[in-house]
Design a protein around this nucleic acid. Structure first.
Lengths: 242, 242
DNA sequence: ACCCTTATGCCAACGCGGTTGACTTTACCT
DNA sequence: AGGTAAAGTCAACCGCGTTGGCATAAGGGT
């Protein structure tokens, strides 16, 4: 690669583009989020982002190694926003619930971006801060380390997986999304009861429920299981460690 | 659109390509799975698939409306294989567990394909058959319809979301995947204990657990919650419906 | 057994994508 | 004030999905 990416902190000269914009990682990421919202998850292209910034597409390579690295920066931004919007109450179960919902809704606030990034691990600073927070809540709640790690793993992967799934549904174009929802009231509701008795019997309930996210239900189930585990552990006197 | 896609069942003439292959939806989907495995989730292109089939890329448009429709056909194939590999035992909890794991591992058997398709709803026949099966298990187990639909929703979305997440990790190129795994034993394990006490304290456990899927843990938690709900319902005499 | 129709495959081209190498300009350091 | 190299620009490369027009041969009707 001929071009070198200069770390944002080491950046000194800020030469404006021909159209007068002064670029920065932050401006690029925010503009990318806007472009994604306006043009859909497939609409983030180097050329389009360049135009939106008032800069040549190739300028982006001065800031990011490629579109992939830009994508990871966007993902970190969403995780960071989730953590910023959250505050601790001290009650572990409520805190985890709020944090999970914060991550989920931070992604869903930018579904087109989330669909691109939610299944990637960035290893960037703000993602690490989030991990530290979750582990802290669990260990402070009294879970021994192996249980804390198991629950951390389940919690974060569950939240990211649902964020990606739900964002994917929201990120479709409006007509495609409506068509997917209608599937439940059209195709599924009209299946013959002889061949598909169970779908036919529950068609109305399905049409009402399927357009929403299952994440809260599953998250609450996970937290309820964890709470039961914790109280069982207290009852039996903290004698097991796994 | 100038070209018409002829439904597979209505297809009569089977003219071989210049290189002698006789095309069919089935052959195309299977070849696409092979191409995906060999070239990664971004490696399925019309031109490459054409070459692999010994046919011109544009010929694919005689069989599918576009790459998107081909993608959905691949997704349905994976779900169909999961259902085929499964058989009912009559014990609802064991059956659901086996079915969930079957879906998960069917996707993970073709991670590059799964990464492309797992978050899409196809509405195709074999996907409908899977849905009917799950609802049947729950309703036969004694869950009233609203609970059955709620659990069906949680179950299927959980399974698909984790399939997508885990497939995404597996679908990375070998070096990228190894780098991601190493993150836990390199970056995370070396964070200073002063700033990140919880990560530092659990680094070894994290490195051991994070490379595996959290799906079984979460699935079992969900099924345990459902079982508890069912027995509570029996105890209180089936008087509630939600 | 032979046509005729038309399904099916092929070809060439279009516009758009990411990315790169060589270049110009200009902010900053000395 | 001048030199240097960072930051922005330009033109080009190659691969992508997709399309319209064309060639050809499969298979039904007679």
């Amino acid at each position: 690669m001929a071009k070198q990416v200069v770390p944002e902190t080491a950046r000194r000269r800020r030469r404006p583009t021909r159209q007068g914009t002064v670029l920065s990682e932050r401006l690029i990421v925010e503009t990318a989020l806007r472009v994604l919202r306006e043009h859909g998850s497939g609409g983030l292209t180097a050329r389009r982002l360049g135009t939106a910034l008032g800069a040549d597409p190739s300028t982006l390579y001065r800031y990011f190694g490629g579109m992939d690295e830009l994508t990871r920066a966007i993902g970190e931004e969403l995780l960071g926003r989730a953590l910023d919007s959250w505050s601790a109450s001290g009650e572990w179960r409520a805190d985890l619930r709020a944090l999970g919902l914060a991550v989920h809704s931070s992604y869903l606030a930018h579904p087109q971006a989330a669909a691109l990034t939610a299944s990637r691990v960035t290893g960037r600073p703000r993602e690490i801060a989030l991990d530290e927070t979750i582990l802290g809540i669990l260990r402070s709640a009294g879970f021994p380390d192996p249980a804390a790690v198991r629950l951390y793993h389940a919690f974060i992967d569950l939240s990211l997986a649902f964020a990606a799934l739900d964002a994917g549904a929201l990120a479709l174009t409006e007509e495609a999304r409506a068509a997917d929802e209608d599937l439940w009231s059209s195709t599924y509701a009209r299946l013959p009861a002889e061949s598909f008795p169970h779908i036919a019997a529950t068609a109305a309930l399905l049409a009402a429920r399927m357009p929403h996210s299952a994440y809260p239900v599953v998250l609450d189930t996970l937290l309820a299981g964890a709470a039961a585990e914790l109280s069982a552990r207290r009852r039996t006197g903290l004698d097991r460690e796994d």
